[in-house]
Design a protein around this nucleic acid. Structure first.
Lengths: 117, 117
DNA sequence: ACCATAGGCAAGCAGCTACTTGCATGTCAA
DNA sequence: TTGACATGCAAGTAGCTGCTTGCCTATGGT
């Protein structure tokens, strides 16, 4: 699966998905039903199970969530790896630049695979 | 204008807007026409002036771009302020949490105004 | 005044996206 | 095996979003 930088931003663009990441940060390795229950209880979200499942698919495609199957349960783990570089792209640069002649286009936006597993 | 955290993510979800931020990082304080020209020349984007203008509106609503009017020119400046906290939300937390009982819902997702100007 | 330039506003359209609905698959307990 | 549980898959729909199109305002030069 080819993962682009844009996938991470797209995944983070939804408030429910961000709440899911909050939930996994609070308690890592939850199942789908656990997430549904806690999203409803703690955050007052009324999303259905399928909706949450699709959100988890998006998060997994973006590399922000990894899963582990165990019997009939599927545990979801947050992976903050893709989060680090995406914002430093603009952060660790001087803000007072006034007229620098930049080089060519950088490949920051191009697709970027990840290693297996 | 009420600015929510989600606005920043939504603003970053579009690849053209990210390229605009790249462009402003490279040369801060550009006008709309400058951005159009450089987006077309350096990045090969064929977006119209109105499209870019709308993107700039979104970025400004998210607080990522600030503007200064001068005669008939309007200069755009990048503001990386909103970028810092949005990812640290999940980053500076332990990843090995297994069963912590979290507190109530945090207000990270709620609307968050900014000071004037 | 006249015109060119820089930008703004608003309606309309196409594609995407989050959500629902319904059913299917796979696993565990009795 | 039978039933309950946890999850997966797919089609359909409503709302959002990025873009275009067309016209308007405002500033500056001549």
């Amino acid at each position: 699966m080819v993962r682009r930088v844009g996938d991470v931003f797209k995944a983070l663009a939804d408030s429910t998905r961000r709440t899911i990441l909050d939930e996994l940060t609070d308690r890592n390795g939850q199942t789908l039903f656990e997430i549904c229950a806690r999203l409803c209880t703690k955050h007052g979200l009324g999303s259905s199970r399928q909706a949450i499942s699709q959100h988890l698919d998006v998060l997994e495609s973006a590399g922000l969530v990894e899963t582990r199957r165990e019997g009939r349960y599927k545990f979801h783990y947050i992976n903050t790896g893709p989060l680090r570089p995406i914002v430093e792209r603009w952060l660790d640069r001087p803000e007072d630049a006034g007229g620098r002649t930049g080089g060519g286009a950088d490949p920051a936006e191009t697709e970027r695979k990840e290693g297996p597993t």
